[in-house]
Design a protein around this nucleic acid. Structure first.
Length: 478
DNA sequence: TTTTGAGTTGTTCGA
DNA sequence: GTCGAACAACTCAAA
């Protein structure tokens, strides 16, 4: 007995597009007229793969749980498999008799390489699901990729209006389901110890919640995004970065939802669009510079005299540097799996400039602890702060964590929330307790070197050391 | 081909 | 307290 040709399923490989709305790969699989077989592959084994960090794995577990429920509601179970995609997918094709594969086009070099090495014996159709624009398609007039954000963003904006998002299919004709792992098999959640309490309290992964969150942001926060997005003590950002990373919402939906707001005053929508284009630009950079996660884009930085200081790196990771805004940021990261964007810049600058520790060490910590860890954005942003990126910050731009704290957390709200031992300090001294009179410290229950560390580096000396190090690798030096 | 203007997010110093 | 200039030189992208 042979099945009719049209009964052979279309395999839908979902990776960073864990959604039903505006999913071109899903739409194409449904449009093929074949039964659809959705599959997620946990790939820790492809050589060169950037194995997802612990916080990302926590998010993935819950995002896949939500996706299973959504697919099930439309009649199609999600198949879970584990292993290198280049062997898992062909095996699944052989097992199910699938006639074609649909997937989102990967951006990470290692994933593209793995896909190129895949020979499934059936057509593989790749669809753009992760970005607004083609990573390869946006080029300068001479055909080279962009290396500077502003002209890149201009080129994107003149491409024309972002097309409307695709609807979610009302019904999916399911293929007979092959064997599947269970999420519990994968052990994505921490057990001993269970450190995910702060993540559970802060987040709700999955497409349905991401859509609600976007709607709320567009109805309120985006109007004041321009003015308030730099204030870490306020809820003034979208907090959609993990949903965007895992594709629970599409960049297109995020763009369009804001574009349609009426009566938008100020530049909130434009700022929001720019942030989406920064995400896009980072993906563009990684696409064209595969070494971005490992090596500085500016070759001169190979000679940078980075220090090796495990104790100071550990103090930074734990939020025990003695610099309040830095410690608050690092503790927010550790507790919630996320850090406000402004504070990311401050803690990153502190690590690479004041401590003179390599940006790769910071990027590795972020990779493991962020629920929104994204290879392109993380690598490009760390290189930018370190000064070795394509579109780098000027060498003299060294964030002063005291001034940054006073400017963007003037009441000390953010520091008080994450560094409770400083909570009773007056706002005037909360960002530099070492300058506070002994009487004020005592009255606030703060003991420097006791219940809160003294700064592990003198800020002025650290700044000068960084300037000297940067001067030592400039071409003007003998 | 050559030229020109510009380049996310800052700090310090001196007037 | 406030303000403007200086802080390298380089590379990018377009005219």
């Amino acid at each position: 007995m042979t099945r009719p040709e049209t009964a052979r399923p279309a395999l839908l490989w979902l990776r960073r597009d864990l959604r039903l709305h505006d999913n071109a790969a899903l739409a194409a699989a449904v449009a093929s007229g074949r039964p659809v077989l959705p599959v997620y592959v946990l790939d820790d084994d492809t050589p060169g793969a950037w194995r997802m960090g612990a916080a990302s794995r926590w998010w993935l577990h819950h995002s896949l749980t939500a996706l299973q429920a959504e697919l099930q509601a439309r009649g199609a179970p999600l198949v879970l498999r584990r292993g290198p995609v280049a062997s898992v997918l062909p095996a699944l094709v052989a097992e199910t008799g699938a006639a074609e594969i649909h997937a989102g086009k990967p951006g990470e070099p290692w994933a593209r390489t793995a896909l190129a090495g895949l020979s499934a014996g059936v057509p593989v159709h790749l669809h753009r699901t992760q970005t607004l624009h083609s990573l390869d398609g946006v080029r300068t007039q001479t055909g080279t990729p962009y290396g500077v954000f502003t002209p890149y963003s201009r080129a994107c904006r003149v491409l024309g209006p972002v097309p409307p998002p695709l609807a979610a299919p009302a019904h999916i004709t399911a293929a007979p389901a092959p064997a599947s792992d269970t999420l519990e098999d994968w052990g994505l959640l921490p057990s001993r110890p269970d450190w995910a309490g702060g993540l559970r309290a802060s987040w709700q992964p999955g497409e349905p919640h991401a859509r609600r969150q976007l709607a709320e942001f567009v109805a309120g926060g985006v109007q004041t995004y321009d003015a308030l997005r730099d204030r870490p003590g306020m809820e003034s950002t979208s907090r959609l970065s993990p949903a965007l990373h895992f594709g629970e919402i599409s960049a297109r939906a995020a763009w369009q939802a804001a574009a349609h707001t009426v009566g938008a005053g100020g530049n909130g929508v434009e700022k929001w669009h720019n942030e989406l284009l920064w995400r896009e630009f980072s993906a563009h950079l990684l696409f064209h510079a595969p070494g971005l996660p490992e090596r500085p884009l500016k070759p001169a930085f190979a000679a940078m005299p980075w220090r090796d200081d495990p104790a100071q790196l550990r103090a930074w990771q734990r939020g025990e540097t003695g610099v309040p805004i830095v410690d608050a940021g690092m503790r927010q990261l550790w507790q919630t799996g996320w850090m406000h964007n402004r504070v990311r810049m401050i803690v990153a600058s502190f690590l690479v400039k004041h401590l003179l520790l390599p940006w790769q060490a910071g990027a590795a910590w972020f990779w493991d602890t962020l629920v929104d860890a994204d290879l392109a954005s993380n690598s490009a942003s760390w290189q930018w702060v370190a000064g070795c990126g394509a579109d780098a910050a000027p060498y003299f731009r060294i964030f002063n964590p005291v001034l940054q704290g006073a400017k963007f957390d003037p009441e000390g709200t953010y520091v008080r929330r994450y560094v409770p031992e400083l909570a009773r300090l007056p706002a005037q001294v909360i960002h530099a307790p070492w300058d506070a009179p002994a009487l004020v410290l005592r009255a606030s229950g703060v003991s420097l070197g006791g219940n809160y560390p003294a700064p592990i580096v003198d800020l002025a000396a650290g700044r000068q050391r960084a300037l000297d190090a940067l001067a030592s690798i400039s071409k003007g030096q003998p």
